[in-house]
Amino acid sequence: MSRVARGLSLVAGGAVSARPSTPAKAGAQTRVSAPLLALRARTGPLPAQGHWDLPRPECSTLSELFAAHPRDGGWAGFLLAQVGTAKPLLWVQDRMAIRESGRIHPPGLPSQNLIHVTARDAKDALWAMEEGVRCAALSAVIGELWGDPRALDFTATRRLAVAAERSGVACWLVRLGGTANLSGARMRWRIASAPSLTHPLDPRAPGLPTWDADLFRARGHPPGRWSLTHEADRFHLVAEHRDRALGEVERLTA
C-alpha cells in the first residue's frame, strides 16, 4: 500500500459538504481514466471536488475477492457497496466458510432480500453459483469458498465468468484462506481491513470502515492499490493510516 498512497495526505473527495445534494449513480459520473488515477494516487492528493471511481468491469462478470485473512470480515463491506439491492441476492457459503468465519447475518446487510445457500462442499457451492448466475432475476451471486478446493479450477471459474457475462448477473467469488491460483475471473481483488476513520464524536469508537484494496489482476484496468472508504453510495480514497491524523485534520477543515 505504501507504493500507492504514500504522500497522499488528503481524503480524496472528502469535501462532504461540496458534493451535490443528490449524488448521481456512480456509473453515471465522469470516469477518471485509470492510468491518470494511478498517477494521481501516487503523486499527490486528488482535488477535493474530484470524483474517484472504483475500477469496475465493463459488464457484469466474475470478480474474485481474496480476504486478506479468514478472520477478517472487512471484505463484505467493500463487496456489498458494489452490489445492487433492487433484486434478490444469492449468497452461497460452503460449510467450512460458515464454520470458520460465520454465517451471514441479514440485519447487518443492506438488503434482506436474499437467498442463502449452505453448500456441503466447493463442488455444490460452485454448482449453486452457476445455477444462480444463469438466473437473470438476481442482482448478484456471492459465493464464499474456503481454502483451495480441488473443484475450483480454471474451468470452473471460466464457466462462471462466461455465464455471468451472458446473463448480466454479477458474480463474486470470495476466497477465504485461499491462494491466488489460476482463475478465469476478470477482476481479482485482495481486500484487507484497515484501521477505521476517526469517529467524529467518540475518538475511542470505530468510525467509518476503510479497506486496503489491492486490484492485482484486471482485464481492461491496470492493477493498483488503494485505501478506500465508502460513504453515501460512493467510494472515497483515504490517506494511509500512518498519515491519517494529518489527513483527517485537513478533511475536517476542508
Binding site: V16, L80, S101, I104, H105, G108, L197, P200, L201, G207
Partner: peptide, 25 residues
C-alpha cells in the same frame, strides 16, 4: 445509541450498521 448531529463527519448510522454482517453459528 451514539448521537450524530455534526454537520460533517459520517452521517448518522442506521441501526443495521450496528449489527455485524456475519454471525458465528
Amino acid at each position: 445509541r451514539p448521537l450524530h448531529h455534526a454537520a460533517h463527519g459520517p452521517p448518522p448510522r442506521s441501526g443495521e450498521d450496528q449489527r455485524p454482517s456475519r454471525l458465528l453459528d
